[in-house]
Nucleic acid binder design. Sequence first.
DNA 1: TATTGTTATACTCTATAACTATA
DNA 2: TATAGTTATAGAGTATAACAATA
Lengths: 166, 166
Amino acid sequence: MSDATSGLTPEELGAYFALVEVANLLQYAVDGHLRAEGDLSYLQFQILATLTDAPGGRLRMTDLADGLVHSRSGLTYQAGLLDKRGLITRAPSPDDERSVMVTVTDAGRALVGRVLPGHVADVRRLLLDPMTAGDLATLNDVLGRVRRHMRATPPRSARPRVKRKN
Amino acid sequence: MSDATSGLTPEELGAYFALVEVANLLQYAVDGHLRAEGDLSYLQFQILATLTDAPGGRLRMTDLADGLVHSRSGLTYQAGLLDKRGLITRAPSPDDERSVMVTVTDAGRALVGRVLPGHVADVRRLLLDPMTAGDLATLNDVLGRVRRHMRATPPRSARPRVKRKN
DNA sequence: TATTGTTATACTCTATAACTATA
DNA sequence: TATAGTTATAGAGTATAACAATA
């Protein structure tokens, strides 16, 4: 792909491809483990883990969607699956009757606790083991900066909800 | 997600999450651009670009699949779409009649050439701009090492083709 | 028997738009 | 009128297993 992507130096190209491939391999491996251990997709694990860390284990649908998913209906779909399995509950918010509060159940917390050790082991084995402490610090710094930059540079996520035609 | 992922230090956690989020944001943005400019998914772009750089613009299906896709039928499906659009051709290999040689057509090369400037611009703007030359060198080194490690550490991709039941 | 690739099928996931209800 | 969420629907993509053809 080097010729096809001229316009980037070999070093830029290498960093770009390595980043994409490493992230893909990591997610593929980790996803496989989560499905095998807990019948969870990576997204479902992220949802449960996010709730687990939220105060009271509860978040509004909108706040939960943030960063995890690109469409509202996508989250509704996933929440429906988790709800059906008794891993979360949904109830209208007392504050704002339009909102829905999502809460992890004990079963949900238990499942996260069950798959977590293997998940962490995967991340350590695949991603962290071949790094030195210095590598880790640099990666943390650079990728943290890039992440802030990307969040601030609305790619397409900032796309507002499409208006009705009438 | 910090509590839920204890077992990793904050720095390890930060690097892991930053990596996944950066790669996801980048792919989401880039995929959107490729679809808008050339009606191509990221995977389809990767297939065309890989072929474009191959000697003679040709590769066997099996060699093309390597790294891009996780199942054979997945590549057949994508190749079918690209073939239908006249971006590639498929023909049995003269050497080994079992193999299929995939070749980019002129139209395929033209399309890659058309979407490439925008693609490169996206990568530069989102990923590379906030990096110093030193950052780039380090990232290249570390991620390159991690990639080799991951490729050598069969996660689940090494899963051989399942044997028939009889 | 092993390898290459395709196909049939079933399933998961995603996104758009229309819709309801509340603010 | 704007916001929160659901639903209907349709489409894209994926994976497994069975299959045919060649080595």
